[in-house]
């Protein structure tokens, strides 16, 4: 009885929020329209495909970040973690290439998923068991992961074995029925994320912990476990992004994934996930990632802004998008 009640409450709530939930998509549509007006090449299928494929990394990591942020946490280490996972993956693949041949690619990908999840678990356990602010914990691990990748590359670059390069390339550049693989992977990750967040008990616990951890604890939710699990999901998503990332340039450098954490958090917040936790919007995050990538693309395609001022205009657009979001939310 009570569970049925909860279900109906949720459904009606879901319907009520829907209008404001559309805000990131409306913002995306406006920016796309703007782009089309500025340069006719913007709408060309080539450009569209490039931009959508490129946004896959931020979108995939963003799905994980949505979980962490929804529990009231924050993960600053994701950019460095990506670089670290990419480095480990390339080293693993190169080491296995002589014995396994092309099978080194799925084997390396598996290694990446395990390493990524463990990195997330580490962040989660230090945060929950050690009872330290996630901001500080992940600031620390951010430095650790960045230093490790710099160490692994000797400050230079770490390239994937030539024999694997050709076989692995299609994972980023190839497509299935015209849809690039990274886009398909993004959709699968987002579908899974949405299912876990909106359709499972764990998902309900995530938002419950984020909106009020004390109430959640009194209701019998294991707050620490929920938070830790969110970090593991984040690590897993970082590894999935790494799997899509390596075939693009085939190398890891100390600058790989630099400042991506800020882009990911921005994408999640633009998408309607509350930074203080309690409200998560998976598809909004995906839209947020697209918005960021489209803005950058439009900046290059337009000739209106001096190269020195591009970042300022990008920043202004993001703030305006957030203000518009707030405005629609208030209604």
């Amino acid at each position: 009885m009570s569970s049925a009640e909860i279900a109906t409450v949720q459904e009606s709530e879901g319907f009520k929020i829907r209008w404001s939930d559309l805000a990131p998509f409306i913002a995306l549509a406006v920016i796309v329209l703007l782009g089309a007006l500025i340069n006719s090449n913007f709408m060309s299928s080539n450009n569209m495909m490039n931009v959508i494929t490129r946004s896959a990394f931020i979108a995939i990591i963003g799905v994980g970040a949505t979980f962490v942020i929804a529990t009231g946490g924050l993960d600053l280490s994701i950019g460095s973690m990506l670089a670290f996972v990419v480095g480990i993956m390339i080293m693993a693949m190169n080491a296995m290439a002589p014995s396994l041949g092309p099978w080194a690619i799925p084997a390396g990908a598996l290694v990446a998923l395990v390493v990524g999840s463990l990195c997330g678990l580490m962040n989660g356990l230090i945060t929950t068991v050690g009872r330290i602010e996630p901001f500080i914990v992940t600031l620390g691990t951010m430095g650790i992961f960045r230093a490790l990748i710099t160490f692994m590359t000797d400050g230079g670059s770490l390239s994937i074995d030539r024999s694997l390069r050709a076989a692995y390339r299609p994972v980023y550049f190839g497509d299935f029925l015209g849809v690039p693989y990274p886009v398909i992977i993004t959709v699968i990750v987002a579908l899974l994320g949405a299912f876990i967040l909106y359709r499972t008990k764990y998902g309900r616990h995530v938002t419950a912990v984020g909106s009020n951890s004390d109430v959640a604890r009194f209701s019998g939710v294991h707050v620490g476990r929920v938070r830790t699990m969110a970090f593991v999901i984040q690590g897993f998503c970082v590894a999935v992004a790494a799997i899509c990332y390596v075939p693009r340039l085939g190398a890891a450098t100390p600058t790989t994934g630099q400042l991506w954490e800020l882009q990911v958090i921005t994408a999640a917040v633009i998408g309607g996930t509350l930074l203080r936790g309690g409200k998560a919007h998976i598809w909004g995050t995906v839209a947020g990632a697209l918005i960021l990538e489209v803005i950058a693309n439009v900046m290059v395609l337009s000739d209106m802004v001096s190269e020195y001022l591009v970042a300022a205009v990008q920043g202004a657009i993001i703030i305006i998008a957030m203000l518009a979001h707030r405005f629609t939310n208030a209604r």
């Binding site: 710099t150 590359t153 000797d154 400050g155 230079g156 450098t253 100390p254 600058t255």
Partner: peptide, 12 residues
């Protein structure tokens, strides 16, 4: 310190 390719070369 070796933070990108060129400085990595300097350290080497």
């Amino acid at each position: 310190a070796a933070t990108h390719g060129w400085t990595g070369g300097v350290v080497f």
